[in-house]
Design a protein around this nucleic acid. Structure first.
Lengths: 309, 309, 309, 309
DNA sequence: AATGAATGAGTTTTCATTCAT
DNA sequence: AATGAATGAAAACTCATTCAT
């Protein structure tokens, strides 16, 4: 519905905008760039309104470090108004008007984030920042821009929220992983693809990592289970492939589970490094190195064997 | 007890004493203790011994410009002995004996598990069972068989208890790891030994694992930091060795940190498997397989297989 | 409601609104609220009213370079009204009405004693009965007829509750006292009035006395400080008056601070007597005697008695 | 007994010395003055030892801001030793020896403070610093240099300790006050003397003031009672005198109790001022001003009446 | 008599969850 | 459906008091 769309979009924007203060200067410097402030008064108003609305989208896409509050913008608007010699009050009400009209247009196309999605987004935010126990339902509800009661309409309790959050994403991962295991690639290609899917997933879901891997244990042992069960479910498939490869002499005869857990661990280690580097590069870049080491070890045997490298 | 024995005893005592520092106040309270020159002969001996130890330790800490030798104090002891009508000879050896016993009591002496140990044991129990947040001080105290207040006599708060618990064990691990890195082995031997030490450690401290590795993040980022910092501190040493080995063409030219984190992760993965098997076998048994894969990969290259790459 | 009425209403509303600031977040939350342009007509009116109030207030705070007049916004409101298919006329007056009601609700509206008031009342009860340390939060909550958690919704902790309780009343006293000191009376009249204000205040706030005067020291030195600082703040004014009077030979040349503290003490002494008599009479009745003694002493000099000195 | 004397003196000294750290620099600067560091090695040792012991006495007399720890002295000793080219260790043991001998001598004459007195002293310290509720029995025992259990041998509980502490001192005050009221002076002289006694008492017992006047209420209403009951007990005597004086026309006919409470309050007010000035002058100095105002008021009537002033 | 480790009742404070509006 | 004020169970932590040595 039109009205609801608008409401949700604007509200969520403002809510999100309402937390930028921490990152001082972040907003301000951003605000002043990239706005064309020439042209008629009308055009400036238009510009500002669109700009303000654009920020919302950026914010939603995660391209901005944090959220913004309307009040943050008011001084900016006023400075511009002063600069352009437009009465601050007229300027302001003009922008407001434009925003109202504009938002209507913009929102028509925007897929409204459902309440549930808003909550899940906020939950991921908070959980990954503070961990399960230190996160409070209050904060999640606040960040989601919904009432606490509403949250409880969608999730039976905090734990359920957490689990559903993780499970949801995990399902995506599983789906991708399954697709690979169900494929017809040879073992090594399959493993490489498998690793790539993992890296890509966490590349995309950075904050999820600690939730899944590091928080899992506390929350009633369910998530940890989940994580490993999902991962393990398709193992038989993999196992068969691997045993086949082994018999062809392609793979060494080391205990399958040891290697499996080890490889997963290796991958997690690399993710740790990546987290320690603040996710400043793409995880996938690590893939070649990882594959090289896991397949052929880190000892350089090339003096004798040339086919590698 | 002959003189050499005494010397030996004193030396070992002082060495051990110097490890007490951590226990906040432990040493300070020594220093603060007054010199009681009345009471029974026994008490005077005790008093002098402790006083001397306090001075000695200040000296060792570098708080004093010069080092004190026991022999310098002998005249003082004699004077006091005379004053107190205790045979100077008996007085002196008495003091020495007290000094030795004191240290023995404080450091070696866990004839019955001390209260602190009982608490630490119970804490390990509960923390590893429930995680930091779900563990309650009440339960730890109860399992330790002490009152809640007693627990707080020994640990300032829950967090301190947790950290001290982990740090204590971690120090052992670090010490072993350091010993290896400081050694003169070639790189591959060193890495093998390093992995062995890890496996042995967790073999011995099964329940500790999740505390150290999985709880770390919550508890004020301190433990996680600790864990990795401790491990990382010696990295430069390792790095140098590895770069050396690389230049000799012994190791591949894969990013050092990637491999390091990866190898640690591999190891953790194997530990996970072991935990999943309820620690039903010795972790060290995994070592050969782990080393084989990490060194030379899991691909069998011995047969010039073409399907790869 | 005619136009003047509205003007009047808005003015009084805004004035009252500006007093809300203390209630932390009270205003901020206004500002933070988003503009909802969907939902029922009623909701839109509400939304616009609140939004305007927020801007208005920023303006009043000096955060904006110019002041906004309501009239500037009228076109915007009209545009929105048009857009939403609400009669512009009805829309506007609706918004205005909401604005007035909003303020009424927030500020005047204590038809039933608010939760916060109930807590403050109970706190005064308990604190004055048992003192700060012996009063328990449990008892205060119980007497207020609210849950413990509710109390903590309104006051960050016990100390804050105490301070807010005292500070609130103290502000009244200070306001009255200031009014007198700022007046144009001659010194003696001023002092008399000052004493009267004090007596009247404690007549009205019997139980508060011990809290303010006798508990002060413990609670982080804040209240005691507060009490005296508030009282002292206006001293320079008084001092000037008194020095003037002194030069005219009206007052004796006794150290100002000695007399000031002494007079305050005298007053407190009389209050003590009154408390000892269970506040069974009006404190103000003591005023004439107090003034007589403080002004002219308790020695009867009217008869040229020689035995003195 | 000799031994006990020594023990107590040294121990109490060291205990007291053990708290100077707070007042930084306080000790160090003090330490370096007033020591003659010329003469033979023997003389220096002697000097240091005596000096160290002297500090104890100063400390006990309250002439030093706080307490000292032995360890604080060691660096000083060492610096001197170095400076004088005496082996630090020999120097140190020399001083120790001297101290032992010296303390024996010094202590023979010192009236040993009984355990109970030590506790009362410490209690006054702590209570007046922190107030009844914030003071802990632990700290009192520690500062008294006795075990907690010992404290409980002498006082049934914390409250009793507090009351006994206050009562003890109050008795002194009462005794002095009684002596005056029992005297044959005329009323005004008597009142003047009475006020003097009060001022002298609190001059001598600075820290006691807040205990008696400001803490009283909490501690089971007993102390407050005590204070006023003691003060009031002799009132009838005073009252009779005053009524007599009144009938002679010497005193004004203002309600006796009002004036009595008022005068006491005036006095307390002046004490407050004095406390606010950190007791930096003698309270008794205020007496003339206080008497002048109370007797004849602060209004200057001298234009008409010459007999005053 | 002296000690100080041990104790647990009693406090403050938090936060997931409910429910009237 | 949405809300957020109200709740109280549960947790951390303190400290006066006891009691075995």
């Amino acid at each position: 519905m039109n009205h609801e769309n608008k409401q949700q979009a604007v509200r969520s924007m403002l809510k999100k905008l309402s937390q930028v203060k921490r990152e001082e200067g972040g907003l301000k410097s951003f605000v002043m760039r990239s706005i064309r402030l020439d042209g008629s008064e009308e055009e400036i108003l238009e510009e500002m309104a669109q700009w303000f609305l654009a920020v919302r989208d950026l914010s939603k896409q995660g391209a901005l470090p944090s959220r913004f509050s309307l009040s943050e913008f008011i001084p900016v608007f006023c400075r511009i108004a002063e600069d352009k010699n437009i009465g601050a009050d007229r300027f302001f009400s003009g922008v407001l008007e434009k925003m109202v009209l504009e938002s209507e247009e913009v929102l028509r196309g925007a897929p409204k984030p459902s309440t549930k999605d808003k909550i899940l987004d906020a939950a991921l935010d908070v959980f990954s920042e503070k961990g399960f126990h230190l996160a409070t339902v209050d904060e999640i509800a606040e960040r989601a821009g919904v009432g606490k009661g509403t949250l409880y309409r969608y999730f039976a309790n905090k734990e359920t929220l957490f689990n559903e959050l993780v499970q949801l994403r995990l399902d995506e991962l599983e789906k991708s992983a399954m697709a690979i295991l169900d494929g017809e690639d040879d073992v090594l290609t399959m493993i490489t693809k498998y690793l790539r899917v993992y890296f890509e997933f966490f590349d995309q879901n950075q904050r999820l990592y600690r939730l899944i891997v590091q928080e899992g244990l506390d929350v009633g042992d369910q998530v940890q289970d989940l994580y490993f069960k999902k991962v393990m479910r398709r193992i038989p498939l993999l196992k068969r492939k691997i045993y086949g490869a082994r018999q062809q002499g392609l793979l060494k005869d080391v205990d399958f589970h040891t290697v499996f857990y080890g490889v997963m661990g290796f991958m997690h280690g690399v993710i740790q490094k990546w987290l320690a580097r603040d996710c400043s590069y793409s995880l996938v870049e690590e893939l070649p190195g990882v594959v090289e080491v896991l397949f052929y070890g880190f000892v350089n045997t090339s003096k004798f064997v040339e086919s590698q490298n």
